[in-house]
């Protein structure tokens, strides 16, 4: 897990489900073959209705045009982010687009597990409704160890919730290394 992460924010609303994160039609691509996996970056968050694409103004795609990478490192969301299907393609697509962190008020649990166990994005929780305070394009910097988030554009600082139990898995990189350390899987 990186100690410091700095980049632009992409703000979305409440209950963004996995079909909005990566529409089911795109799930046919291989997640390993490089020419195919890059499409997950292109179509990440492409299921958002236009008015919800990058709050507060909308109409700002997460990944612009024909690009494969997004300019945004942080996704700022309301409650129940990642509800719906168990598709691991969802946190994977966010990572493939270049996102490193999601900060939401709450998560649907399968998305949360997938983000952590696969080591795709770090899912921080916030008690403050950041989607009302942070705008798409704001520059943010985060210290992962302390959970201190700074909005460099507005100058405001926030303290995110502690990562808790999942910090151990995030430090391992993914669940396999965690399982090896727990003695559930033989060492390489």
């Amino acid at each position: 897990m990186k100690e410091h992460i700095r980049g632009q924010a992409y703000v979305v609303g409440d209950s963004i489900d996995t079909d909005q994160i990566i529409p089911a039609i795109h799930l046919v691509y291989s997640m390993t073959v490089p020419e195919e996996r890059q499409f997950y970056g292109r179509y990440a968050l492409s299921g958002l209705p236009e008015a919800s694409q990058g709050l507060p103004h909308g109409s700002t795609p997460f990944t612009p045009g024909d690009a494969f990478k997004s300019p945004y490192s942080f996704i700022i969301a309301g409650g129940n982010f990642g509800c719906g299907s168990s598709r691991e393609h969802a946190p994977f697509a966010l990572q493939e687009a270049g996102a490193e962190v999601v900060i939401a008020e709450s998560y649907a649990r399968i998305f949360y597990r997938n983000a952590v166990d696969g080591g795709f994005v770090i899912p921080f929780e916030t008690r403050v409704r950041l989607i009302d305070e942070i705008k798409t394009g704001d520059v943010l910097s985060l210290t992962t160890g302390t959970g201190i988030l700074k909005n460099e554009t507005s100058g405001t600082e926030y303290l995110l919730e502690p990562l808790g139990d999942i910090a151990e898995i995030l430090k391992c990189g993914n669940v396999f290394e965690y399982a090896r350390q727990a003695g559930m899987m033989t060492q390489r």
Binding site: E88, I110, N114, G118, V175, A179, M184
Partner: peptide
């Protein structure tokens, strides 16, 4: 319950998984 590909791959190899 439902899990993602990573958790499923861990089960496929070990028959075990962590849950809260």
């Amino acid at each position: 319950t439902g899990v993602g590909n990573t958790d499923a791959a861990l089960i496929m190899g070990t028959g075990k998984i962590w849950v809260k």
